[in-house]
Design a protein around this nucleic acid. Structure first.
Length: 888
RNA sequence: GGGCGUUUAGCUCAGCUGGGAGAGCGCUACCCUUACAAGGUAGAUGUCGGGGGUUCAAUCCCCUCAACGCCCACCA
């Protein structure tokens, strides 16, 4: 019979993607809608930087969040997924500065603050929307009306409100402090933004004279000889027998010949170096502390661009590297350099600029996080917020249990300007949420705002609040703050646990007393197939949009979901995407098979008494899959969810149910046809439903053929739930046996190199009467599945055919009489091999049963299982013996 | 130096509270069989990093060694 099919032979992702994304937008399917759960479910998208092109990490973010949101939406939660973008102070400013320099040879100071910011905004308007396009290509179902940019009005207000609040509480303070200075950005950066890298350097052993005793000299080891101009002391350990008499005396710094005190300080390690330490409070974190303890002066010998200033006259204007060489030259000349030894040094680099950061003392704003950290720790310890996988809480704790004050000011222009004002007429300094018109103290008009801006993470930390309108009460009401805060789940990568997760926790709890989200799912970092980080310099990056163009968004999403469980790395090989593209296509073709029969299908399932055993079986299997998928999604095991449905579609639905349906659908029995068509349609509705959170496009496309009401979109359907009444272990057992027999016959066919066209006669022997009956009734199917032309099925008391190709399962012996055609020795060997294997298995269980300790200690169910297995192996061995006998 | 993690089939990885070693990709043979060659059928492959211990029973728990990776701190 010829069946017409007007569907394309391969699935075309592109047209489906565009079509359905617009339909979802039109139908407002992404907007929160009250559902049967009576609860909200909010997810906050980590806002990508406006500078950025989306990379695979974003694609993983998008896929996992979209899967969760779609799942929960279908489960009947009122879902809200909030998108947005981050102004990313440092990187954006750097990108635009570079661009302007390239085009006009002007730096930001040439343009002035106002003009420069205008240019950055212009740039942002042009490129910021690119991100939205890219996200939409991946199918994200977020509510675009909630889209927020960190420099929008409300986040601006949030930042100011929070700043002023903490300023007035005394938690935000200004201080001269040693900070990490990035000479490229010409700004302070926080500790968290510094990355340490191993760099080859040297130990320089320098000779310092002691003023009081011209014959005495101290040898000091240092890795940074160029900083001697900023030294204000020499320190030794007060318990160090070698040097303690020198404490109180004076050392003379080579080159600049400055006299500095020799002091005793516990920090000095007797074992390390020479036991003498040069103290540079202006350019070293530890020395800064020593200086504070001992009241030492601070000398700053660096300019903002990292070159040396006039306090280091011999090297003025030089960069640290050149300065070091010059100092080395002079020291050698003066015979003050005793020795130079190679040494691996770990040196701080700016996360953004990748330039060596210089510790430098400057006036900065700090946020005291002691109390906020404690609260944030408590929230996780109490279970108010849970990490998935749980292990990541260690990383979180490591950061928060050892809080350091957070340097929040940056010497940049692009960002939230610090809302602190200074009066020029009096000494007043105050923080205000709105632009002031006069000095709070002298009411003078001559005041100015602090020129610095806040660390980007300061505004990101308030993201859960500001995206829902805080602190503007009107906007909060519009956006449903009370309804959607706290969020339910945060999904992000582990690299920003303390940059972002910890800060949101601290700030969210500070403002509302509640953790901003209940769950944090930490997903893997996407790497290349060799496990290397994707980076520009390696050129191993994979562009998600290329993958979408090449294989379709569904294939890429399925790949990412399948690779994303509780693992730390996700090594992505484009070949895997191709593999899952094939899966998507498989699904499409399975549907192509069903499609012509949809006319016959009814919308309601027939009464149970009319179900074929195949139907009961596939519905039971599908039901189990739905159970496992629900469980997996609930705990963010996207890998399990994907594997479950993948295996079902391939190994159960396509390989068996569809194959078994052909005989019926191409047959004569009209009633049976209708039932089978109805069942297939029903299964397909469930399959695309279950798959929808992972592969939204193809499932919506297929759904459109299955649902007559074109207004009902799959995205808004109810997710399949477990239904206990569909479970049926007897049917499963029967089908498994039938599959054993079919596979067994195919196995024999393959072993004797039979062509698919060759028809065969099969003789089956089993003592399972129900099975015998079912197999007999299924004889037509066996023709389709294994080209069985004729056969008999008898009990094991009957004589077996001689010299046949044969095989034994635990329940059935299969004979294919082929005397004269087959190599008998080969057959005997095959049976013997099977026998050895089975015997080995049997021995394993037998030894357990003979082990008294096992019988005494093992739980009953385990014993029962082992018993059953032993019986199964015995049966099989007996059958194999019978098979061998047939060759005698 | 402190902490975390990883080590299971050629590759990438799953294996929950101990009780049959699994998946995908790849590979081999045969097949263009009327949903699908982006396919079908059949098949091969593991001393579960090494050693020791607990247990009737260890990939799983404990100890130890080794290799690799990450994070933090520090480096006179």
């Amino acid at each position: 019979m010829e069946i017409e099919n007007n569907l394309p032979k391969t699935f075309d992702p592109k047209s489906a993607e565009d079509k359905w994304y617009s339909k979802w937008l039109e139908s407002k399917s992404f907007k929160p809608k009250a559902g049967k759960q009576g609860k909200t479910f909010t997810v906050l998208m980590p806002p990508p930087n406006v500078t950025g092109k989306l990379h695979m990490g974003h694609a993983l973010d998008a896929t996992t969040q979209d899967a969760v949101i779609r799942y929960k939406r279908m489960k009947g939660f009122e879902t809200l997924w909030i998108p947005g973008t981050d102004h990313a102070g440092i990187s954006t400013q750097a990108v635009v500065e570079k661009l302007i320099w390239k085009q006009e040879k002007k730096n930001r100071h040439d343009l002035g603050r106002e003009e420069f910011l205008r240019r950055v905004w212009e740039w942002k308007e042009q490129y910021g929307s690119e991100i939205v396009n890219q996200q939409q290509k991946m199918g994200v179902s977020c509510d675009w009306d909630y889209s927020t940019f960190t420099l929008d009005e409300v986040p601006n207000k949030a930042v100011k409100k929070f700043f002023v609040m903490l300023f007035n509480e005394g938690l935000i303070y200004q201080s001269d402090y040693i900070v990490n200075w990035d000479p490229i950005l010409q700004s302070a950066i926080s500790d968290a933004e510094v990355e340490h890298k191993e760099v080859k350097g040297f130990f320089y052993y320098l000779r310092y004279k002691v003023k009081e005793d011209p014959n005495m000299e101290l040898i000091i080891a240092t890795t940074r000889p160029e900083t001697i101009f900023a030294d204000t002391a020499v320190a030794v350990n007060p318990d160090d027998e070698r040097f303690k008499d020198l404490i109180g005396k004076t050392a003379i710094i080579p080159i600049c010949n400055r006299e500095v005190p020799i002091i005793g300080d516990e920090h000095v390690d007797i074992e390390k170096g020479t036991g003498c330490l040069k103290v540079t409070p202006g350019h070293d974190f530890n020395d800064f502390e020593i200086g504070k303890r001992n009241g030492l002066p601070i000398i700053n010998i660096l300019n903002k661009d990292g070159t040396f200033n006039k306090l280091a006259p011999e090297i003025e204007g030089l960069k640290p590297k050149d300065a070091r060489a010059e100092v080395e030259r002079i020291l050698t000349e003066l015979d003050a350099l005793v020795e130079k030894k190679e040494h691996m040094n770990s040196v701080g680099h700016g996360q953004r600029s990748d330039e060596i950061v210089e510790p430098m003392v400057s006036k900065q704003w700090f946020l005291n996080t002691t109390e906020m950290s404690r609260v944030a720790v408590e929230a996780v310890e109490s279970g108010e917020m849970t990490f998935f996988p749980k292990g990541w809480e260690n990383t979180y704790f490591a950061w928060l249990k050892n809080p350091k004050d957070w340097c929040i000011s940056r010497q940049l222009w692009w960002g939230h300007q610090i809302p602190v004002y200074y009066c020029k007429s009096c000494d007043a300094k105050w923080a205000a949420e709105t632009d002031p018109s006069e000095c709070v103290e002298c009411r003078g008009k001559d005041f100015f705002q602090d020129p610095d801006v806040l660390d980007t993470w300061f505004s990101s930390g308030l993201w859960p609040l500001s995206t829902l309108g805080w602190p503007d009460e009107k906007v909060m009401a519009e956006k449903g703050f009370d309804k959607f805060y706290p969020n339910e789940t945060l999904i992000t990568g582990f690299d920003i646990i303390f940059f972002w997760v910890a800060r949101m926790m601290m700030m969210g709890m500070k403002v509302t007393g509640k953790a901003p989200f209940a769950h944090t799912y930490i997903h893997a970092i996407v790497r290349d197939k060799q496990g290397r980080k994707m980076s520009k310099s390696l050129g191993n990056g994979i562009d998600p949009l290329d993958m979408v163009a090449q294989y379709g968004a569904d294939a890429m999403r399925f790949t990412l979901a399948a690779g994303s469980g509780y693992n730390r790395d996700l090594n992505l090989d484009p070949e895997r995407i191709e593999g899952y593209r094939n899966f998507v296509n498989k699904l499409w073709n399975a549907f192509r098979f069903v499609h012509p029969f949809l006319d016959k299908a009814k919308d309601e399932l027939p009464v149970k008494s009319e179900w074929h055993l195949h139907d009961k079986w596939i519905l039971a299997e599908l039901n189990t899959v739905s159970k496992h998928m629900n469980e997996a999604f609930d705990v963010y095991r996207f890998d399990d969810a994907s594997a479950e449905i993948y295996a079902f579609v391939y190994d159960k639905f396509c390989s068996w149910y569809i194959e078994l349906s052909k005989n019926i659908l191409y047959g004569e029995d009209e009633k049976a046809k209708i039932i089978r068509a109805t069942m297939l349609k029903y299964c397909f509705r469930k399959i695309v439903n279950l798959l929808h959170p992972i592969v939204p496009f193809i499932t919506e496309e297929i759904w459109s053929y299955l649902e007559t009401d074109s207004k009902r979109l799959l995205i808004s359907e109810e997710y399949v739930e477990f239904d206990k009444s569909l479970e049926n272990d007897d049917v499963r057992e029967m089908m498994n046996k039938f599959i054993d027999i079919t596979t067994g016959i195919r196995n024999i066919r393959s072993s004797v190199n039979m062509k698919p066209k060759d028809e065969i006669d099969v003789k089956l022997f089993t003592d399972d009467k129900k099975l015998a009956k079912f197999v007999y009734e299924s004889r037509h199917f066996l023709k389709d599945l294994a080209n069985v032309k004729s056969g008999t099925i008898r009990n094991k008391e009957q004589d077996r055919p001689k010299k046949s190709a044969s095989l034994a399962t635990a329940h059935t012996e299969i004979f294919i009489p082929l005397e004269g055609i087959i190599d008998l020795n080969e057959q005997v060997n095959r049976i013997k091999k099977d026998m050895e294997k089975t015997q080995a298995e049997y021995k394993k269980v037998e030894s357990k049963l003979n082990n008294q300790n096992f019988m005494a200690n093992a739980p009953e169910e385990v014993r029962a299982e082992v018993n059953e297995k032993a019986k199964m192996y015995q049966d099989k061995l007996q059958s194999l013996n019978t098979l061998l006998d047939s060759f005698m």
